[in-house]
Simulated assay, not measured.
Amino acid sequence: MNDAKSILSIAKRTLEIESKAIFNLIDQLDEQFAHAVQYILESKGRVVVSGVGKSAIVASKIVATLNSTGTPASFMHAADAIHGDLGTIQDDDVVICLSKSGNTPEIKALLPLIKIAKNKLIGVTGNMDSVLAKQADFVLKTYVEKEACPNDLAPTTSTSAQMAIGDALAICLLELRGFSSSDFAKYHPGGSLGKKLYLRVADIVVNNQKPQVDINTSVKEVIVEISEKMLGVTAVINEGKVVGVVTDGDIRRMLSKYDNISGLTAQDIMTSNPKTVDVDTLAVKALKKLQESGISQLLAFENGNYAGVVHIHNLINEGIL
């Protein structure tokens, strides 16, 4: 059995080789990259990304990244393109072809068809003497010294470089388009990521009960209100305005302080100046406020009026935490 030390040594060597290759891409960036970004930005069509083998898998990932960051994109396998899928490419589309060598048979067969259709071609390759590099309108250089594979065969470092240059392309387009977090939310409405981008306090408060008592309410009734509304807190109201809160913690502190609680009211045990949040606040920001304050609940307000309570358990149930 191989020991942990030798296994970790292989893993570290792999990451070192790939990270060095990605870092070296910085020096390979030139005006060709900038022109390619600018052309895509001004294009009326989509970005069609193509490749073969592992490059095709990277192409599919780049398409997903572009689509999720505001640049319409479509994947087309280079082998399928010459067998009927060439119709994927429309008149105004920009085509990106990925190939380490730039000389794979499928890519070489596809290039003349793209040129005949007069679509702009962006080549992503590490071989500047290749057919792809020579026929492309713009070339994004992804030269790597070697693959992480000890036989220098399995696409590892080269595909990492392709992935990184694709991310650089997508982020340039994102920033130049002014693509905001609200735009991002439109493309990611599902899951915890989407909720962090669009879920607001109002969406949570509406599903909770609204605990409240008067300042003169007896402690027994305060405890009943907290228990029935199941949020561990109640707002304390005086003449229609919130003047404090009573939490489970206030109840515990009261019991340790007083032997006789029969004459006590909400005003006697409440915490003044409670932490609050506006209903239009993003739930993730409400969570941050809870964490910074070291508390479990916030009173929510709408147009200056008490609207209810948001509890940290609500945020956990929504997948925000």
Rank of each mutant, 00 (worst) to 15 (best):
P72N: 11
T69L: 14
D152Y: 10
Q291S: 04
L315E: 11
K108T: 15
I89H: 01
F23V: 12
A21F: 02
V284S: 09
D214F: 04
L113P: 01
A154V: 15
A117F: 09
A202N: 11
S227G: 08
T217V: 09
G102I: 02
K195G: 04
S74D: 09
A307H: 09
E239H: 12
I237K: 03
S130E: 04
K285A: 08
S101A: 07
H188C: 05
L298K: 03
L174F: 04
S181H: 10
S50W: 06
S262C: 03
E221I: 02
V233T: 12
V131D: 13
G232W: 09
F179M: 11
Q90W: 07
I295H: 10
D137A: 04
R46M: 11
T265Y: 10
S9Q: 14
S6H: 12
P155N: 12
D80E: 15
A117P: 00
T217I: 07
L290R: 02
G308E: 11
T276W: 01
K288R: 12
P189L: 07
S19G: 12
I40W: 08
Y306N: 07
T65C: 07
K229Q: 13
V236W: 05
H35F: 14
G53V: 02
L25A: 06
G70S: 12
V309C: 05
D91T: 14
D129W: 02
L66C: 04
I237D: 02
S50G: 14
A21Q: 02
K120T: 15
T157K: 01
F184S: 00
D259L: 12
C172P: 00
P150S: 11
K54Q: 05
A11R: 05
K186G: 08
L169P: 08
E239G: 05
I215A: 10
S180G: 08
K44C: 04
C97A: 15
E228M: 12
E225S: 13
T88C: 13
I122V: 15
T281Q: 10
Q297N: 15
A148Y: 03
L121R: 06
S68Q: 06
V48S: 08
E292K: 14
N208K: 08
G240R: 09
N305G: 01
E145G: 13
N208S: 08
N103V: 03
I82L: 13
A34P: 00
T88D: 01
N103E: 12
G294K: 09
P105T: 14
V219I: 15
A34D: 12
I96T: 05
L173D: 09
N317K: 14
A164E: 03
D129F: 00
V284Q: 13
A164S: 14
I171G: 01
P150I: 07
A21I: 03
I226L: 14
N314K: 06
V124N: 05
G70E: 03
I116F: 03
Q212D: 06
V201F: 01
D27M: 03
A300N: 01
N2H: 13
S218D: 15
S99R: 02
K146W: 07
A136P: 06
H313T: 11
Q90T: 08
L255R: 07
F301R: 00
S101L: 03
Q297L: 00
C97T: 02
K288N: 13
L264P: 01
Q291D: 11
T88L: 09
S43K: 08
T247Q: 08
A170Q: 03
T276M: 15
